[in-house]
Structures are given as C-alpha cells and as structure tokens.
Design a protein around this nucleic acid. Structure first.
Lengths: 155, 155
DNA sequence: GGTTGATGGTCAATTCAGCTGACTAACTCT
DNA sequence: AGAGTTAGTCAGCTGAATTGACCATCAACC
C-alpha cells in the first residue's frame, strides 16, 4: 500500500503492542525524571485511574486491571510501602479497604497525566484530532467485539 | 454484575491495553481450541512474526520484542522444547543461531493467522474498512513519535 | 598477522508479577 | 438465625524477564 515492497504491513497486535510501549515509555521516563522511579508497571495504571476517581476498593482495581484480587492486593501493598497509596477502611462496609492516593501519589499522578496529555497532543498534531478520535472509537469497538467472548470462555 | 471499568473516558493507554487483550484472548483461545495450549504469551508474537519472515536470529527477536537477548533466548528455548521452533546455525555467520518454525510451529502460526484475520474482519465489519485503515495509520504515527525517544534511552 | 572492539549467544542467579488454594470477616437475603 | 455472597488476606508457587559474567565470532585496522 504505502510502503516499499520489502516491509510487510505490521499486524494489528504488533501495532497495538508497540503503541502501548510508546505510551508506557513516555510515562515511565517522565516519572523517572521527576524522581518517581520505583513504580511497578501496573502501578502506573492504578495511579492514573485514581487520579480521576479517588477512593476505590481493591476488588474494583482487580477487575479494572483484569487480574485477581490477590494480585491487586499485592500491588497495592507495594504501592503503599513505597508511599504512593493509602488504605483506609470504609466506614460503611467494614470489609472494604478503600485505596486512595497519598500526597506523593497525587504528585506522581499529575506528572503522569501531564506526560500522557503531551503525547496525546503530539499525536493529534501529527495526524489531526479527527483521526485520533476515529482511532479511539475504533479501538473501543474492537474492545466491545471481544467483551462477550471473554465472559464465557476465559477460565 | 454491571460493573463498568473505573475510568470515565478511557485514556489512550487503557484503550490500547484492552484492545491488545482482545486480540490476545482471541488468538490464544483459537490456539487452545486447536490443541496448542502450551504457548507462552510472547510465543504468539514470535510465531506470528516467523509466519511471515522465516529464519531470524535471536537478537533480532529480542529487539522486535523489546526484551533482552537473554530473555529472547529463554523464550526460544521453551518454544524449542515444546516443539514449535528449531535453532539452526547460520553457515554465513557462525555466531548466529537462526530460528525457524517446525511443522508444529507452522501449523500453530496458521491457526493464529486465521484467527487474527477473523478478528480483523469483524472489526472492519463493525466500523468499516476506512476507519480501520485510519486507526492503523494513527497507531503507526504514534509509534513513530516514540521511536526517536527510544533509541537514546533504551539499551 | 595480531590486536581491538563490536556483535551474537549462553549460563547462572535473581527479581517481579501474578496465580492458585485456603482461609477469615463482614454484609445480604430470607 | 442461617446460608450464601463479597472483600480481603496469607502462604506458596510459577513464569517471564532481568542483571552480571562470560565465550565465540566477525570486522576493521595498524
């Protein structure tokens, strides 16, 4: 199509993988430069999520990340010991531990949000806002395509 | 039951992550159904890549996957012991071990390619070929955006 | 022709992420 | 007052990828 004959068009999974790595590298290095160099990979995800909706129980994190609640619990553990998160018991449901950002966590979240916005902006500058909007909708449609499938079949 | 993901308007990294999971789930379950249930995650990637361009040295795999050559070596190891790959020394450069698909590997690659094409097709049916093409180009632009960055920082 | 440096790969030990299984505590429903 | 469900933890484990040390080969060059 657009490339010289030698190179094949990369498959969709490859594109997605590399695109994700692009974001991941950008966010991580912004955080590292700002001194937040001890975040586990999924920590970025949690911190980013909590930046928008503060105070979330662990099991919700687990579902959002697609991992077990034990895994989420461990992840929160390390983020707590590293000073990014706090657990506070929910007064309304004494089973729940509500996870919130500490000051350090909020600072890291802000760095991350800024870095993400910067990359988002660079992408829009490169291909135009319409193309980005379209790509987002296409990705959302793809995810919806997979959703029903996942429920039944995934162990 | 209806427990929507915790983000309001999903960020680009979230979309990419879930989109990738969609592909990953589809390919993996197609392979599992066909009896190839012992592939490690990145094994899909290697097999898919080798389906197009057979015979690749390990260090190239490492670069393509964005992992260390040791990691790639281990991955190839397990894929060899599970019967998907073969190592053969390169006669032109006696340092290199060329990795190729075995019969089993080719069979698995074919299943995977078919499954991927099916999902590609479903996506095109959902949003139209133009939108998919646009999304691919947008992702490629995003990846290019990250590339110069990577060179300097990455090993 | 022998040294130097880059490249390709391996071995060993370790870290890290996430999983399973088994369990307790609290809430909900009847 | 139970029975079932949901939230979370503890303990032990696996798998993937890392670091560090190392060897073999090739390419270049004085």
């Amino acid at each position: 199509m657009n490339d010289p004959p030698m190179s094949l068009a990369p498959s969709m999974p490859t594109l997605l993988r590399q695109a994700q790595q692009t974001y991941s590298n950008a966010l991580r290095s912004a955080l590292t430069d700002a001194g937040y160099d001890d975040l586990p990979t999924n920590g970025l995800f949690i911190i980013g999520g909590l930046a928008r909706r503060d105070g979330v129980p662990i099991s919700r994190l687990a579902r959002a990340l697609g991992i077990t609640k034990q895994g989420a619990g461990q992840l929160v553990d390390t983020l707590v010991t590293r000073g990014y998160l706090e657990r506070t018991p929910d007064p309304h449901d004494r089973r729940q531990q509500i996870v919130t950002l500490t000051q350090r966590g909020r600072a890291a979240a802000e760095i991350q949000t800024t870095a993400r916005a910067a990359l988002d902006g660079a992408l829009e500058a490169s291909v135009g806002p319409a193309a980005v909007g379209n790509a987002r909708r296409t990705l959302a449609a793809l995810i919806d395509l997979g959703r029903p499938w996942v429920e039944g079949e995934r162990r």
